[in-house]
Design a protein around this nucleic acid. Structure first.
Length: 808
RNA sequence: GCGGGCGUGGUGGAAUGGUAGACACGUUGGUCUUAGAAGCCAAUGCCAAAAGCGUGAAGGUUCAAGUCCUUUCGCCCGCACCA
C-alpha cells in the first residue's frame, strides 16, 4: 500500500459517484450548520490561508457527522470586488470571465483537498440569481428607512478611485491598498446601522465568540454616556454640544466647532471671514492620516461669534478647530482647558482663560490640566459635589430650560455602501426629475450589471458611461429618468450569504422563512479575525434588520465563532509575493497527496495560532502516513498467535480507549494538533504490540478503531485503509467510536513522591492500597532524603502523589 | 495614551494548582549498506556529573505555581484629538 495523489483521486471519484456528501435536511440527528467564511475567487488558486481555514474544519465536520449530527456545510464564493476589476484594467480580461474561471479552478481544488461540501447548495455573489436578492434586500432596507442618501464628507481612496466605509479605513489609509485616504464631500448611500448600535452592543455578551473579537466590536460601537448641552449663539441660533463632563461647565472658556460643520459659515463674522474660510479650506485638504497625527499642534481660528454659557450666562468665544471631528457627537464641543488636555493645549496656544473648577477627591488642587473625576469648586450651588453627583444635578437644572439632557453617544457611524466602481451589484434606485429617488420595482429585479462597459476608473462610476444602463423610465410616473450609477460595497453581498445557503435555489423569495428559522443560526462560524469590525458587524446588522422586517426569527447569525491563525512563510514572515516567500500548496498535494498537506496544517500548530510553513513538517507527516501504512502491511502478513486477552492486550486496549476519549474531547475543541499526537501515540503502541505474539481478532478491532479515528483527518487514506481491512464503504459513514470506560480502569496506579513539592521518586501500587500504607511506602522509598530531617506534614493526593513536608 | 493577548528546550508546540517539556522536528550515536539516502534502535532541558538549576524578570499566596495574585520588562493586536 502506498498513499499518493492517485489515492485521493480514486476516492474523490467514488464520493461523487455515490453522492456521499449529499445533504438531507430530513436526515436524523441534530442539525449543525457549520460554515467557513466564503472566499474571494482570486487569481491563481487556493493558497495556504484557504487551506488552513478549510482543511481542519473539513476534519471537524466529518467528526461531527460521525458523532451523529446532521451537518450542513456549504461553500460559495464572494465573487464581486475590486481585484477582478483591477486585473481587468491591467489585462483587458473581463472581471466576469476571470471570476467565473477562478471559481471553477478553486472548486476543483476544494474537491482535490477532499472537502465534504455539498456543492448543490453553493452560491456565488456575482450571479444574477444571487445579487437579485442583494438588491431586493436593499429595497427592503430603503422602504424601512434603513437605507438613505446623504451628502457628507466621506473617505475617498485616490488609488481605488472610490469611497470607503469607516471600517475600511485603517490608520487613515485604505484597508485594501494602504493609500492615504482623503476626505471628499459626496452624495452617497448609507445603511443606518446606528439604529442598531445599542442592540449590536448588548447582544455581544451572549455570543460564544473569542473574547478579543467581542471586545473589538464593543470598542468599535463605542457607547459613551454623557450629556447634550444647548448653547445660545449671538447670531440667534443654538448649537448642541456633547460632553461626558457636564460637571466642568463652570470652567467653560470657549466652544469649538468642527471645520466641516454646516453651521460654520453662519457663525463667521465678516471681519473673520477670510481667516475662517482659509482654515476650513486647509482642513479639507488634509489627509486623514495627517490630521490624526499626534505630533500636530492643535490649531484653530476665532469665528467672531460668541456663545452663552447656559449655567451662568457668561459669553465665550466660538472657535473653529480641526481637533473637533464633525462626525462624532454633534461636531461642536465645550472647552474646559483646566480639565481637558486638548483644550488646555489649545488655550495655552491662543491665550484663552483657564479656570479651575475641579479639585481632587480630598480637596487638593492638582496640577492642570486635571482630567480625573473629583469635587467641584467655583460652581455656584454645585460646589462641593462630586463629579458623579454634579453631572445629573447640572443637567437637571439645564433641563428645566430645555437646554440639557443626559444621553448616550456611539462611535459607530452609518455604513457607507456606495462604490464608484463597476464590479459589484448595482444599487437598485432610480433618480426621476419629478418623483425624486425611487426604488426599482421588485418585479424588475435584478438590475443587471451590463457586460460591455468601459471600466477605467476616473472617480465616477463606470456605469455612468453606459447609456443603455443609465436611461430608464421612472417606475412611478414613467418619465425619462436615470439609474443610480454606483454599485454596492461587496460587504453587502457577504452580509447575508449565510442566510441564502440553506435555500440557495429558491427563485421565488430571498429564502423560505420556515427553512431559515430551522437551519439558522450558524452553530459554528470559522474565519479570519480581520473581519471583526467589518463583515461580522455588518452580518449581525443585516440579521437584526431582516428580523425586524419579519423575514426571520432569530437575533444573531453566528452562535459560535472561531478564528484560525495565520500561515506564515518558511521565514516566519507574512507570505507575500514581494517577499518571495509564498508557498503553493498544489505542488505539495501533487507530491505527497492532499491528506499529507491536511495533516501538516493540523499537526504543526495550534489552530488559532498558525505559524510558519515548513517543508520538514510536511516531510514528517508523510513519514507518519508511511508508518501507518507499514503497520497495516505488516499486520496483513501476521497470523494469529492464539494468545488470550492478557496484559499486553489490556495495555493496548487502554491506549485505544484513552485515544478515543482524548481525541473526542480535543477535536470538539478544534485541537487538531493534540488529537494527532494521540494518534501517533496509539500508532506507537500498536507497533509495540505487533513486535510480540498477537491476538488477531483483537488486533483487527484495534486497527478498525484506528482507521475510523484517522478518517476525518485523512479522508482518502482512511477509505483506503478501511477497504484494506475488508470493511464496506464508506468509513465516513461509520459512527464515532465510544469509550469503553472499563478498559480505562487500571489495577495499579503510579504514586509520585515529593518532599516540599520536589520530585523524589515514584512507585506503583495496587489501586486498593490504603492511604497509610501508601505514605509508609513512600517514606520508605525516599528514606535517604528524609534522614536527619523533621517531618512536619504528610500530604496525600488520592491516586496521585505523596508530598512530605520536611524541615532541616 | 487606553484596552486586550502572549513570553515554556536548538525548533513547532504539550501540560483540570499535583512527575514541566506529551507528540513531532532537529541533533548525536548505533544498525543496515560497497557507499549514501530511507528505514529501524537508542540518547537528547541546562550542567562532565551525585547534587543542584530550570516556563521573560522580581516578589507573594500554597504542602505544591508554567498555571493564582502584585510589580516589571519585551513582543503582538485592537482603538485613539471620541469631547
Amino acid at each position: 500500500m502506498s498513499y499518493s495523489k492517485a489515492t485521493d483521486q480514486k476516492w474523490q471519484q467514488k464520493w461523487v459517484d455515490t453522492n456521499l456528501y449529499k445533504y438531507d435536511e430530513n436526515a436524523k440527528g441534530d442539525k449543525l450548520y457549520c460554515l467557513e467564511m466564503f472566499s474571494y475567487p482570486s487569481g491563481a488558486s487556493l493558497h495556504c490561508g484557504h487551506w488552513y481555514n478549510f482543511a481542519p474544519i473539513d476534519t471537524w465536520t466529518r467528526f461531527k457527522k460521525m458523532q451523529g449530527y446532521n451537518v450542513f456545510h456549504p461553500m460559495g464564493f464572494d465573487a464581486f470586488g475590486l481585484p477582478a476589476e483591477n486585473y481587468a484594467i491591467k489585462t483587458g480580461i473581463h472581471p466576469k470571465d476571470s471570476t467565473l474561471k477562478n471559481i471553477d479552478i478553486m472548486t476543483k481544488q476544494l474537491v482535490a483537498m477532499g472537502a465534504n461540501y455539498d456543492w448543490n447548495y453553493s452560491l456565488n455573489t456575482c450571479d444574477e440569481e444571487y445579487y437579485k436578492w442583494t438588491q431586493w434586500i436593499f429595497v427592503q432596507l430603503y422602504k424601512k428607512g434603513l437605507a438613505y442618501q446623504k451628502e457628507a464628507p466621506v473617505n475617498w481612496c485616490p488609488s481605488c478611485q472610490t469611497v470607503l466605509a469607516n471600517e475600511q479605513v485603517k490608520d487613515g489609509c485604505c484597508e485594501r491598498c494602504d493609500t492615504p485616504v482623503v476626505q471628499k464631500k459626496m452624495k452617497q448611500w448609507f445603511f443606518k446601522i446606528t439604529d442598531y448600535a445599542d442592540e449590536l452592543l448588548k447582544d455581544i455578551d451572549g455570543l460564544n465568540w473569542p473574547e478579543k473579537t467581542k471586545k473589538i466590536q464593543k470598542n468599535w460601537i463605542g457607547k459613551s454616556h454623557g450629556s447634550l448641552i444647548t448653547f445660545d449663539i449671538d447670531n440667534g441660533t443654538q448649537l448642541q454640544a456633547f460632553t461626558t463632563r457636564a460637571d466642568t461647565l463652570y470652567g467653560l472658556s470657549y466652544v469649538v466647532i468642527a471645520p466641516e460643520h454646516p453651521a460654520v459659515a453662519g457663525l463667521t463674522k465678516p471681519e473673520q471671514k477670510e481667516a475662517v474660510e482659509k482654515y476650513v479650506a486647509d482642513a479639507a485638504k488634509l489627509k486623514e492620516i495627517d490630521r490624526m497625527s499626534e505630533s500636530r499642534e492643535r490649531t484653530g481660528v476665532f469665528t467672531g461669534s460668541y456663545a452663552t454659557n447656559p449655567v451662568d450666562g457668561r459669553k465665550v468665544p466660538v472657535w473653529v478647530a480641526d481637533y473637533v471631528i464633525a462626525s462624532y457627537g454633534t461636531g461642536f464641543v465645550m472647552a474646559v482647558p483646566a480639565h481637558d488636555e486638548r483644550d488646555y493645549d489649545f488655550a495655552k496656544r491662543y491665550d484663552l482663560p483657564i479656570s479651575r473648577v475641579i479639585v481632587d477627591k480630598d480637596g487638593n488642587e492638582q496640577p492642570l490640566p486635571f482630567c480625573e473625576h473629583g469635587k467641584l469648586i467655583n460652581s455656584q450651588e454645585f460646589s462641593g459635589m462630586t463629579t458623579e453627583e454634579a453631572i445629573p444635578a447640572i443637567v437637571a437644572k439645564l433641563a428645566k430650560e430645555g437646554k440639557g439632557e443626559l444621553t448616550t453617544m456611539y462611535r459607530l457611524r452609518d455604513w457607507l455602501i456606495s462604490r464608484q466602481r463597476y464590479w459589484g451589484a448595482p444599487i437598485p434606485m432610480i433618480h426621476c426629475p419629478h418623483c425624486g429617488t425611487v426604488p426599482v420595482s421588485e418585479s424588475d429585479l435584478p438590475v443587471k450589471l451590463p457586460y460591455d462597459v468601459e471600466f477605467r476608473p476616473d472617480g465616477e462610476s463606470p456605469l455612468k458611461r453606459c447609456p443603455e444602463f443609465m436611461h430608464v423610465k421612472c417606475p412611478v410616473c414613467g418619465a425619462d429618468a436615470e439609474r443610480d450609477p454606483d454599485t454596492m460595497d461587496t460587504f453587502v453581498d457577504s452580509s447575508w450569504y449565510f442566510l441564502r445557503y440553506p435555500d440557495a435555489r429558491n427563485n421565488k423569495e430571498v429564502f423560505n422563512k420556515e427553512k431559515i428559522d430551522r437551519m439558522c443560526p450558524i452553530d459554528m462560524y470559522v474565519g479570519g479575525q480581520e473581519h471583526a469590525t467589518m463583515h461580522l458587524l455588518y452580518a449581525r446588522f443585516f440579521t437584526k434588520a431582516l428580523r425586524d422586517m419579519g423575514y426571520l426569527d432569530f437575533d444573531e447569525p453566528f452562535t459560535a465563532l472561531v478564528h484560525q491563525g495565520m500561515i506564515l512563510g518558511p521565514d516566519g514572515q507574512k507570505m507575500s509575493k514581494s517577499k518571495g516567500n509564498t508557498i503553493n500548496p498544489d505542488i505539495y498535494v501533487d507530491k505527497y497527496g492532499a491528506d499529507v498537506v491536511r495533516l501538516f496544517f493540523e499537526f504543526a500548530f495550534s489552530y488559532t495560532d498558525g505559524g510558519p510553513w515548513s517543508d520538514a513538517g510536511i516531510e514528517s507527516m508523510s513519514r507518519y502516513v508511511k508508518r501507518v501504512e507499514a503497520l497495516f502491511d505488516k499486520v496483513a502478513t501476521l497470523s494469529d498467535s492464539g494468545t488470550e486477552m492478557g496484559k499486553r492486550e489490556k495495555d493496548l486496549d487502554f491506549v485505544r480507549n484513552n485515544t478515543i476519549k482524548a481525541i473526542t474531547k480535543d477535536l470538539d475543541a478544534m485541537q487538531f494538533n493534540t488529537s494527532l499526537a494521540r494518534m501517533m501515540e496509539y500508532l506507537n503502541a500498536l507497533n509495540e504490540y505487533v513486535q510480540g505474539p498477537v491476538n488477531k481478532t483483537f488486533l483487527n478491532e484495534c486497527l478498525k478503531t484506528y482507521v475510523v479515528l484517522l478518517a476525518p483527518f485523512a479522508p482518502h487514506l482512511g477509505e483506503e485503509l478501511w477497504e484494506a481491512l475488508g470493511q464496506s464503504y464508506s468509513v465516513h459513514n461509520q459512527p464515532w467510536p465510544s469509550v469503553d470506560e472499563n478498559a480505562l480502569i487500571k489495577n495499579d496506579m503510579v504514586i509520585v513522591i515529593q518532599t516540599n513539592g520536589k520530585l523524589r521518586g515514584q512507585f506503583e501500587v495496587a489501586k486498593t492500597t490504603d492511604k497509610d500504607t501508601i505514605i509508609a511506602m513512600a517514606k520508605e522509598k525516599i528514606k535517604d532524603y528524609l534522614a536527619g530531617k523533621e517531618i512536619i506534614k504528610e500530604i496525600y493526593v488520592p491516586n496521585k502523589l505523596v508530598n512530605i513536608v520536611v524541615k532541616g
